[in-house]
Amino acid sequence: MTSKKLGALLRSVPPATAAETAPAHEPSPAAAESSRPEQAEPARRPSRTAAVVESEVPLQVLIPASIRKQLALKAAEEGQSLRALILRAIRSLGITVTDADIKGKRGRRNI
């Protein structure tokens, strides 16, 4: 339980990353014109990408040095970070990984 004083201190500064709720998608003018109430689709659950950017947790694993080297080479060849490469591989296993997950939070912080 955070004390009132610490809570006030925390609220007085921005988060380190942009992990807050993103604004809801606004329909384009054309879409707004064409969508009459009787035609409106039922409300859908917001997707992970549209609603919330999750916090990230560390994942450290030991792998053979030769595989680590191949990963580094592959990342360099494709001009991607190791993180992006590994997340793409995880997505290929059928695990839900969005483009926003791969893009990551870097560069989206509020200063």
Binding site: A19, S55, P58, R68
Partner: peptide
């Protein structure tokens, strides 16, 4: 991890839950 400081762990946690970490 394979380098000379591989046994010195580095944990990335840029969120407020850093206190728990």
């Amino acid at each position: 991890a394979a380098g000379r400081l591989g046994a010195l762990p580095v944990i990335a946690e840029p969120e407020e839950r850093v206190g728990d970490v």
